[in-house]
């Protein structure tokens, strides 16, 4: 993929500065940041929207009080876990859900406290998965843990961010055995390495697959098809709104 400055002017409004995150190439280049509205490159865009540069959204700490049980959970964790100030990077409350951004090397410790403390009791780890915020930050790969407390009927989300160059964080399988396959899936799809996992191998993709498909810089793939005489490009090359 060519960098934007060597790219021929594709007919859109010329862009004076290279927008951040616009260098990795399609199809990953669509939000959270980027240029244009339609996601197409190399074809003429005379709408003028091709020159739009959309800002990136940053996640910010929520102010206290968080409301609901969120204060109680955060306080209980602070009390039970001495490394709270160091391990918890951010506390975000959005749409009635609590997210604790945890320093990746501390994730297993935090999970242990979340599970065992009598005031927290998050016995069930509902889900472990990843999100790739390409271009947003140095630590673009986020691992997301959804914990459920069956005792108190509460949910909380833990999020740990690692970089693509050093995608390591401790496995939580020792705390939640159910994370086994889900961490394998996250490794398979995002290439995040869970240190201490008993058997970190691919699970959904074939064993000899190359690359990690859910990363944003991994193309969707597909071949153009002919339909009624016209050639329809694969979904990730089609002109579409972003």
């Amino acid at each position: 993929m060519t960098a934007p400055q060597d790219r021929p002017n594709d007919g859109g409004v010329p862009v004076p500065v290279t927008p951040a995150g616009a260098t990795s190439g399609a199809p990953a280049e669509y939000p959270p940041a980027g240029r244009g509205m339609f996601g197409n490159q190399g074809t003429g865009d005379v709408s003028g929207y091709g020159g739009l540069v959309r800002p990136r959204r940053t996640v910010e700490d929520s102010p206290r009080p968080y409301g609901g049980y969120f204060d109680e959970v955060t306080d209980a964790l602070e009390e039970a876990y001495p490394g709270f100030a160091d391990a918890i990077e951010k506390v975000v409350v959005d749409r009635g859900e609590l997210t604790l951004h945890v320093r990746p090397e501390r994730i297993a410790e935090v999970c242990q406290v979340m599970r065992d403390d009598l005031a927290l009791r998050f016995e069930l780890c509902s889900s472990v998965s990843g999100v790739d915020y390409l271009g947003a930050d140095e630590r673009r790969l986020h691992v997301v843990y959804q914990l459920t407390s069956m005792t108190y009927r509460r949910r909380v989300r833990l999020e740990a961010a690692v970089s693509a160059e050093d995608p390591h964080l401790p496995s939580v399988t020792g705390v939640y055995p159910t994370a086994d396959w889900q961490e394998r899936e996250t490794y398979d799809m995002f290439g995040i390495v869970f240190d201490g996992h008993p058997n970190l191998t691919r699970i959904l993709m074939p064993d000899d697959w190359e690359g990690h498909p859910q990363r944003k810089d991994y193309p969707l793939g597909g071949v153009p098809v002919e339909y009624k005489g016209a050639e329809i490009p694969p979904p990730d090359r089609r002109r579409s709104y972003q």
């Binding site: 959270p32 959204r57 889900s127 998965s129 999100v131 579409s240 709104y241």
Partner: peptide, 16 residues
């Protein structure tokens, strides 16, 4: 688990 970045398409959807 659905993530939106403000666009017209899901940024990430994960099914548990």
């Amino acid at each position: 688990h659905a993530v939106s970045d403000g666009g017209t398409r899901p940024y990430r959807v994960h099914y548990r």
